[in-house]
Amino acid sequence: MATKVADVMTPDPATVEAGQPISAAARLMASNDAGAVIVTNNGQVSGIVTDRDIAVRVVAQNRGPDTPVQEATSGDVTTVGPDTSIDQAVQLMRGQAVRRLPVVENGRAVGIVSLGDLAMERDPSSALADISAAEGNT
């Protein structure tokens, strides 16, 4: 049974610089079959942008594909390290009401852990684990 975030995270996550257009983030999501991309500022993790952020903060506001990623990014980002325990990650997600946590070492993204990753580890027979394990779900 896994005990640390490093055991369940997706390594080498997609990242996008904060000043790039939101269309770049959307293309990364499409090519990586992911619902989120980690946002960086000069390579250092500064946020996360989700497909929902794009829908609500860009499309619904009639903003264009050239909108800078930083304008669609959620505020403060909660991160964990690879050695963070799975229990701590669960508590952080619960307390911060987030579905994904960038995994960071020395300010740089080394992975991402999702609610689905943790569900598959904790209760592989749960509905969330089943959905998360299905092809095309990240």
Results as ranks from 00 to 15, higher is better:
Thr10Leu: 07
Asp12Gln: 12
Thr15Tyr: 08
Glu17Trp: 12
Glu17Ile: 11
Glu17Asn: 14
Gly19Thr: 10
Gly19Ser: 09
Gln20Val: 09
Ile22Phe: 13
Ala24Leu: 08
Ala25Asp: 12
Arg27Cys: 00
Ala34Pro: 07
Ala36His: 09
Ala36Asp: 11
Ala36Leu: 07
Ile38Phe: 03
Thr40Cys: 07
Asn42Glu: 14
Gly43Met: 03
Gln44Leu: 08
Ser46Gln: 12
Ser46Glu: 12
Ser46Arg: 11
Gly47Gln: 11
Thr50Glu: 02
Asp51Thr: 05
Val58Gln: 13
Val59Asp: 13
Ala60Pro: 13
Gln61Trp: 08
Gly64Cys: 13
Gly64His: 14
Gly64Leu: 10
Pro65Glu: 08
Thr67Val: 15
Val69Lys: 14
Gln70Asp: 11
Gln70Thr: 12
Ala72Asp: 10
Thr73Val: 14
Ser74Glu: 04
Gly75Trp: 04
Gly75Thr: 12
Gly75Arg: 12
Val77Ala: 08
Thr78His: 13
Thr79Asp: 05
Thr79Pro: 03
Pro82Asn: 02
Pro82Ser: 09
Ser85Cys: 00
Asp87Cys: 00
Asp87Pro: 00
Gln88Ala: 14
Gln91Asn: 12
Leu92Val: 01
Met93Lys: 13
Arg94Asp: 10
Arg94Met: 04
Arg94Ile: 07
Leu101Phe: 05
Leu101Glu: 03
Val103Glu: 01
Val103Ile: 02
Val104Asn: 05
Val104Asp: 03
Glu105Gln: 13
Asn106Gly: 10
Asn106Tyr: 02
Ala109Ser: 03
Val110Ser: 07
Ile112Trp: 05
Val113Gln: 08
Ser114Asp: 09
Gly116Ser: 12
Leu118Ser: 14
Leu118Phe: 10
Ala119Leu: 09
Met120Gln: 12
Arg122Pro: 00
Pro124Asn: 03
Pro124Phe: 00
Leu128Asn: 02
Leu128Tyr: 04
Ala129Phe: 04
Ala129Ser: 06
Ala129Cys: 01
Asp130Met: 04
Ile131Trp: 05
Glu135Val: 05
Gly136Ala: 00
